[in-house]
Nucleic acid binder design. Structure first.
Lengths: 108, 108
DNA sequence: TTTAGTACCTTGCAATACAAAGTACTAAAA
DNA sequence: TTTTAGTACTTTGTATTGCAAGGTACTAAA
C-alpha cells in the first residue's frame, strides 16, 4: 500500500460504467472491441470486469445487443445504447464533471 | 439504476482516500472534522466509511493519531499525515490527474 | 486433427462503501 | 440526581463490484 502502483486502478472504480457507455456512444461495439478502445486511452479493463458490467447495463435497460456473424471466429455480441442509456450517459457525464470539480477543490 | 441520483456516489469510490489525505494535508483533524470538511465541498462521507478507512491508513503507516481532550464531549482522535503519507498523497494526486485526462479523453 | 486466434462467459475471492446499531463522554435541563 | 441532548468513536452485516483464473466454443490454417 505504501506503493501506489495501483492507485489509479483504485480510483478508476466507478468510472468504468461512464467510459464503457461513452465508447458505445461512438458506435455499436462488441466486448473485445470495447476493451481495445479503452486500452488505447490507457484505461485497462479485463473481461471478468466487462462482461458482468455489460450484463448489468443490459438488464437495467441501458444497453441492448444483437448477434453478428464473424468470418474469423465465433459470433460477436454487438452492444448499443438504448434511449435510456443515452439519457443515463448524459447524467453520468454531468456527475463526472461535478466530481472533478469537487475533488479538485478538495485537493486544491 | 435508470435514475442516476447516485451516479456521483458510485464514481466517488476510489477517490475518498485521496480526499481524506488532502484534508489532513491542511492540518491535523479528527474524524468528525474530516466529515464536515468534505461535506463543505459537497463530498458526503459517513462514519461507517471513514472510520475503517482511517484505520486502514493508520495500519499501513500513512497516518498516525493522538488523543486530545474535549470540553464538549468524549476525547478526539486527531489524525495527521506521516512522511510516508505525504509521499503517498503526492502519488495519489498524480494518479488522479492522470485519471481525469484519461476519462476526459474517453468521453470526449 | 491439431493448433492458433478470436470471442464469450462464469466462478470465487477480496476490497470497500454504507446503513444501522452500539458505546461512552460532557454538560445542561428537569 | 437523574434524564436528555450533543458530541464522538467503533463495529457489524450487507451489497456491490473489480479481477484473476479457468472454461466453452467457433473459424481457419498448418
Amino acid at each position: 500500500m505504501l506503493n501506489s502502483e495501483n492507485a489509479q486502478a483504485q480510483m478508476r472504480k466507478g468510472v468504468l460504467e461512464l467510459c464503457v457507455l461513452s465508447v458505445l456512444k461512438n458506435g455499436d461495439a462488441y466486448p473485445s472491441q470495447i476493451i481495445e478502445a479503452l486500452r488505447e486511452t490507457k484505461l485497462v479493463v479485463v473481461e471478468g470486469t466487462l462482461y458482468p458490467l455489460l450484463t448489468r447495463l443490459k438488464n437495467t435497460g441501458l444497453l441492448a445487443y444483437r448477434w453478428e456473424e464473424s468470418t474469423s471466429g465465433p459470433p460477436r455480441k454487438y452492444y448499443r445504447l438504448t434511449p435510456e442509456g443515452i439519457k443515463y450517459l448524459q447524467e453520468l457525464q454531468t456527475a463526472w464533471h461535478d466530481l472533478v470539480l469537487t475533488v479538485n477543490k478538495t485537493i486544491q
